[in-house]
């Protein structure tokens, strides 16, 4: 009954993170915060970062959204925590390459567990769900204080 594509999309790890998101909390205080919004489906995320020097010491998020967006936010936080901001940016770029279906190959080794989201590229309308948290992270690190929207 359930297609191969759906199994690829809703992998165990994704379902598990969507049900029990990690770092699902506000940080007080936080050195950087950012809000992300997907006006198409109403997904919202608020991201909290504690950046010391160049290192993302701590990270947390809150919000509501579909399984893909929640799992993506959860796994984004676990994968950038303790990394430098430039390492986080590299992950952003690889993640984006994987989902944009670009001709340029992405580095699976760098992405590690995040490759579990590769199935999302088969569902173009859901790509924004997976990238919302990452766009919000980038906005947070740049800390321009604006709400990022997937439509912009």
């Amino acid at each position: 009954m359930i297609s191969e594509e759906l199994r690829e999309l809703y992998q165990e790890l994704i379902l598990e993170h969507s049900k029990k998101p990690r770092n699902f909390r506000a940080l007080e205080p936080a050195s950087h915060t950012a809000e992300g919004f997907n006006p198409l489906c109403g997904d919202k995320i608020k991201l909290y970062l504690e950046v010391v020097g160049d290192e993302i010491k701590d990270i947390g998020f809150q919000g509501s959204g579909c399984a893909i967006s929640k799992a993506s936010a959860s796994m984004m936080t676990t994968s950038v925590k303790g990394k430098t901001t430039s390492e986080a940016n590299t992950l952003f770029n690889e993640f984006h390459k994987m989902l944009a279906g670009s001709s340029e190959p992405y580095d699976e080794g760098k992405l590690g567990k995040l490759s579990v989201f590769s199935g999302v590229s088969e569902f173009p309308v859901r790509v924004k769900c997976a990238t919302l948290a990452w766009h919000t992270l980038r906005a947070g690190l740049e800390s321009d204080g604006k709400v990022v929207s997937t439509e912009s």
């Binding site: 009954m1 297609s3 594509e5 489906c41 109403g42 959204g65 399984a67 893909i68 309308v125 859901r126």
Partner: peptide
């Protein structure tokens, strides 16, 4: 309560069932 409308929409679509998922322009 614990399944988002967009996930429902995607899975239904794969079964050939077209519905709308979202805020229906009525936020």
């Amino acid at each position: 309560d614990d399944i988002h409308a967009h996930d429902i929409g995607t899975i239904l679509d794969q079964q050939g069932v077209a519905i709308r998922a979202g805020h229906h322009c009525a936020m």
